[in-house]
């Protein structure tokens, strides 16, 4: 069997950092695979796994709607492709999002992850922070959480497993092959979460 093919959605946001982290994760796991930027429905259709990076969810949503990528990603997730949404990426995966200040949002979402998100839940940029968190359920005891204008999860459906909380706020979840985090593992140099995601893809491959 050939190697795994992982894409990082390259519409807007910190794409390069996620490509680097995923490549290094594959290497450390001793697996065979490639990691590329994907933007078009054609590029997405070949993938075994997808990372939706941090950025602005309104921008990523609006633009991936324009070129048909949003629809293709939905099809792929429905067929079981593992997907990892980081910050804006997690918002994209959710069913519902509201903003802490502005209120209910009508923005294009993928509508898979059965959660309701509060955007900018910890405040604006000055309130962004780093803190040590843990994800014991997936064997990650210590992780440096980098929270940048981060969202949190305020409601979860029955199939959603909570992986981590910060001061009672839910900041990491898993639902089947979907992972979502409020924080940015790609900015830390700690590959454990990207490695966990790659191993999910490998198991499915």
């Amino acid at each position: 069997m050939s190697g795994i093919n992982i894409g990082v959605l390259a519409v807007q946001g910190d794409v390069t950092e996620n490509i680097m982290a995923t490549k290094m994760a594959i290497e450390e796991l001793g697996l065979d695979g490639i990691v590329t930027e994907v933007k078009t429905p054609e590029q997405i259709s070949d993938l075994d796994g997808l990372v939706i990076p941090g950025g602005e969810s309104t921008v990523i949503g609006t633009l991936s709607l324009v070129n048909g990528s949003l629809k293709k990603i939905k099809e792929k997730i429905a067929s079981g492709m593992p997907v990892f949404g980081i910050c804006a990426g997690m918002i994209m995966l959710s069913k519902k999002a509201k903003d802490r200040v502005v209120g209910e949002m009508d923005q294009p979402l993928l509508d898979f992850l059965d959660v309701k998100i509060e955007r900018n839940a910890f405040g604006r940029q000055k309130d962004s922070f780093e803190s040590e968190i843990s994800m014991d359920k997936i064997g990650i005891k210590k992780f440096q959480g980098v929270f940048i204008r981060a969202p949190s999860i305020i409601e979860t459906g029955k199939d959603v497993e909570v992986l981590s909380k910060f001061n009672e706020k839910i900041i990491a979840v898993k639902q089947g092959n979907i992972i979502g985090t409020s924080f940015h593992p790609e900015l830390t140099g700690d590959l454990s979460l990207h490695k966990y995601f790659v191993s999910l893809i490998k198991a499915k491959h």
Binding site: Q12, G13, D14, E17, G54, S128, S131
Partner: peptide
């Protein structure tokens, strides 16, 4: 928690990329 680190400040700018 720690606020105002270079990772947070520069990281914020990284989230704007391609925008």
């Amino acid at each position: 928690i720690t606020r105002g680190t270079s990772t947070l400040k520069r990281g914020f700018a990284h989230m704007l990329k391609n925008g």
